[in-house]
Design a protein around this nucleic acid. Structure first.
Lengths: 158, 158
DNA sequence: CCACTATACATAGCCGGGCTATGTATATGA
DNA sequence: TCATATACATAGCCCGGCTATGTATAGTGG
């Protein structure tokens, strides 16, 4: 039944997009997803260089530069000189940044909670497992295409 | 444990964002998510007026105007005069638009298929159920806040 | 029929996020 | 030392998102 798996994946992405937009509205947060994504990556990965951040965030390097600039102005990340390489600097989340991230996640989940409050134990388990499954695949995909953020139209696969 | 439900929702959104971005990369499609979202709404809802499209897409009206303009130029939607109301027009997906949407969904799912090909029957069932659950909630949310796309800070009573 | 308000959409204008192309400074290796 | 590679910054473009506002048509009271 691979064809049903195909349509399942299509549905998954589409319902995902709805949920993402819904969640964004739910908070009323004026911050863009990119802000939270960047903070997320930095928060879970620890201080890292800009290139690494770009790769993990799966955006092009100049985009990461812009985002880090914005976040630096807000005081949510800072740049520490890298003693080993004067070209680079370590990007790190500040305490304020981490706090903002936590606050946003709480707010987001809190806003969505009413919609999901009626889930029974089985459904909660289903969602938990789904998150796990998708997370694994996202990790795997990151490993498979580490150097190809978006830029690459490599082709060549038959 | 409602607190674990909270963190589950946070994780759900976060893994969602990863998946969405991953999926976008997977196709190599240069089209933006907004294009597919708009076509999706029109395709599943049938021809509708611009305001209705904006509401269902959960964007502000001028955003919908822009998107429809772009899509019209590409020949993926067209505007038909509304005989009952000269201010409005019915927006409809063209055959080409519907075909492009299907092609994209196939491409998307096809690109993601390798990542999910090793799922066993139980995991497929889990994902299917998760899609169903989230879809229900998204529908419910749409019903709850039908007139509030993003614009409304509840001021401005006359 | 006329004026007035309400509605549906278009236009203008701003901002942020995404990209490519290219510049600049530092590392690195022959 | 010099050439090349690497890490990031800058410039410049486009699109999607918004608010504010304009314009044309609907609807309605007189």
């Amino acid at each position: 039944m691979p064809s049903s798996l195909l349509s399942l994946l299509g549905d998954l992405v589409s319902v995902n997009q709805r949920l993402t937009r819904l969640a964004a509205r739910a908070t009323g947060s004026s911050e863009s997803p990119a802000v939270w994504r960047t903070l997320s990556v930095l928060n879970s990965g620890g201080p890292m260089r800009l290139g690494e951040l770009a790769e993990l965030s799966r955006v092009a390097q100049p985009t990461a530069t812009k985002l880090v600039s914005n976040l630096t102005e807000r005081g949510w990340v800072n740049r520490l000189a890298d003693p080993d390489d004067a070209r680079a600097s370590q990007i790190a989340v500040t305490t304020a940044g981490a706090a903002a991230l936590i606050a946003w996640r709480d707010e987001l989940a809190g806003a969505m909670l009413p919609l999901f409050a009626d889930l029974d134990t089985d459904d909660v388990a289903v969602l938990r497992r789904a998150v796990e499954i998708i997370g694994q695949r996202a990790d795997a995909a990151a490993d498979l295409a580490p150097g190809a953020p978006v830029t690459a139209p490599p082709e060549g696969q038959s």
